[in-house]
Amino acid sequence: MNIGQVLRKIRKERKASLEEIALIAGTDAANLSRVERDKQRLTPDMLENVAKALDVPVSSLYLIAEQNLHPAKSTNDAGKAAAARLEDALSRFILLSTQDQELTVDFMELLLKAARK
C-alpha cells in the first residue's frame, strides 16, 4: 500500500470528503485525488499538511503503508493473526484524539505490568 492509499483509507474511515481534507491541507481536491490514486507525488510539505488535516502523524502513515507492503513475515497462522490484530489496533489508535491515545498507552503499560506479575 502506498502513502496515497493510506491517506484515502484514513480519510474514508473518518467519513471526510476530498474537498474537506484538501481545504484544510491548503491544496485542491483534484491534487489530493491524484495523490490518493498514485498519479501525483506528494511533496514533504503537502504530506505534512494532509497528515495534519487528518490528525495523523506522518510516521504513522509510513508505518501503515509499510505493514501493508510487507505483511507478517511469519507463515504460521498465529503470526498472521497477531499481525492482523496489530494493524487493526493501529488503524483505530490513530483515529483517537491525542488525549485518548495517551490514555491508551497508559492502559497498555498497566496491562504489561500486570502480565509480568
Rank of each mutant, 00 (worst) to 15 (best):
E48I: 12
N31H: 14
F107W: 04
R41K: 15
R92F: 02
I24E: 05
D28N: 15
R8L: 00
L111T: 11
E109V: 06
V58D: 00
R11N: 08
L18S: 03
A22G: 06
R8T: 00
L47M: 15
M108K: 02
D100Y: 07
E102W: 01
A81R: 15
N76E: 13
F93E: 01
L54K: 07
A30L: 10
T75K: 15
G4K: 02
N31C: 12
K80V: 13
M108L: 06
Q101W: 04
L112V: 12
G4L: 01
D106S: 15
D100A: 11
K117F: 03
A22R: 05
K117H: 06
L32R: 04
A83D: 05
S91P: 06
S33K: 14
D28A: 11
L7F: 06
L47Q: 02
N49A: 06
T104W: 02
R92V: 11
F93N: 10
E48R: 14
A51F: 01
N76P: 11
R34W: 04
R116N: 13
S59K: 15
L61S: 01
M46G: 05
N76S: 12
A114Q: 10
S97H: 09
D88A: 14
R34Q: 13
L23H: 10
L86A: 14
L63F: 11
P57V: 07
L42P: 02
E48F: 13
A89I: 10
S17A: 10
S33I: 01
P57D: 11
L61P: 00
L90M: 14
T98P: 05
N31I: 05
L32Q: 07
V35C: 14
A53T: 00
V50N: 02
L103I: 04
L86H: 00
R34H: 08
I3Y: 00
L112N: 12
D100G: 09
L54A: 06
I10W: 00
A65P: 09
R8Y: 00
L86W: 00
R34D: 08
S74Y: 03
D28Y: 05
M46L: 15
A53D: 02
Y62K: 13
A115Y: 12
T98W: 08
G79M: 07
G26E: 01
M1A: 07
S59M: 14
A53S: 14
L42N: 02
A78F: 05
K113F: 07
L23S: 07
A82T: 03
R34A: 08
E109N: 03
A89E: 05
L7D: 00
M46E: 03
A89F: 03
E109L: 09
R92A: 15
E48Y: 03
L54Y: 00
G79C: 12
L42D: 01
K12S: 12
S17V: 07
E87T: 11
T43M: 09
G4N: 05
E20W: 06
L18C: 03
R92Q: 13
R116G: 11
R116A: 11
P44G: 01
E36G: 12
S17L: 09
